[in-house]
Design a protein around this nucleic acid. Sequence first.
DNA 1: AACCGTCACAACCGCAACTGT
DNA 2: GACAGTTGCGGTTGTGACGGT
Length: 390
Amino acid sequence: MGRAPCCSKVGLHRGPWTAREDLLLTKYIEAHGEGQWRALPKQAGLLRCGKSCRLRWMNYLRPDIKRGNITLDEEELIVRLHKLLGNRWSLIAGRLPGRTDNEIKNFWNTHLSKKLMMKGIDPKTHQPAPERIHKPRRLMKDNEDQETESFEHGMTEKDAISSSGGKGVQPIHLPKPNRYIAFPRHLSHEANVGITNTSVTNSDVQDVLLSPSIDLNSPCKNLQASVDSDHSSSGMLSDINPIHELGREVSNLPQQGDPEDCFPWACIEDWPSEFQPTEPKCISNEVELELQTSANNHIIPPPTKACRNNKPENCTNTLQKIYEEYLKELLQDETVPSNAEMVSSTTKNNGDDQEINIFPEGLSSVWECLEGEDELLKDQRASETLSLHL
DNA sequence: AACCGTCACAACCGCAACTGT
DNA sequence: GACAGTTGCGGTTGTGACGGT
């Protein structure tokens, strides 16, 4: 299946795998383990390329793959994760034990995106979609002659989404995040058992906090401490994602009069020594991804990679400028504070008041002025973000 | 029964990130 | 730092199954 090979693979089998091939591959991996995919086919007696073997194993033959339909719970989780992470299928799959990225991607493309469109939600932005976009395909075909002006003038659907949704809908472009190393599934169970003993009960919490891609020895090291000290974790995934934890930590940082006049979360150099990284690259890839995604969702300003790479001279880098321009556009006449104050919210934690700072003040108004979201959804998102349970 | 369109998903590809030298 | 080989990710496609006409 798939398109023609890019290179000559004369003599190699292609297309659907036979039962015999599956058996050979399974037996070989059971005996020798995963890896060395290029050498594997020859040693296993398979006339397949290594890439094909890897794919077959990862997406189909692995013993821990969950069979059967995706449940409603999984469906909801996928939607929420997609809203947060976008098309990062491997990341999403990492939160659904037994499901593969390919499976989730297919399920999204064939079911969920359509389901969202039927609800009038654009599956790419998770914002209300223009009517033209979420019309069922069949209806669109029927009305093909009644193309809107936009389409008549060569606009693609993508363009239409961008322009019609207006400000607040189109995410800013951010560089592709660093490679994410998936959480090995065979460790997932053990990890969950381990965390259960620390009396954290929410599986989403466990999943996020235990992902080895989140470096607990990094500036996010307080993550673990937070988990250990808390016994009331019952929040949704979005309540406890690493970015909020990071926000919680930096809430203690100097927020005003920052000599660099840059976003308080942007320059690690400005953080107090106890929060300084021990390694130059202290924020794990996933946290970085979360930061960027959150920036897309207007929760916080994006950190600047140059800053994290200890290049203070680049603190006002392009990304930050882009983001500031974007905020100005969002706010129209409002002034975007360059050195944002933090807005506090108070939540209960085991009966103790706990001060949690989440939004730079300027950004809370961004949040409020977001267009295209109905009030209910906005409230829900705001409360999800604000009600930290840790 | 034949045809056609759509759906579902396994499999493929290109490319970027990672790793070792 | 440069380079080559390996691995993993996300987008895309081919094909069988299925339902409607």
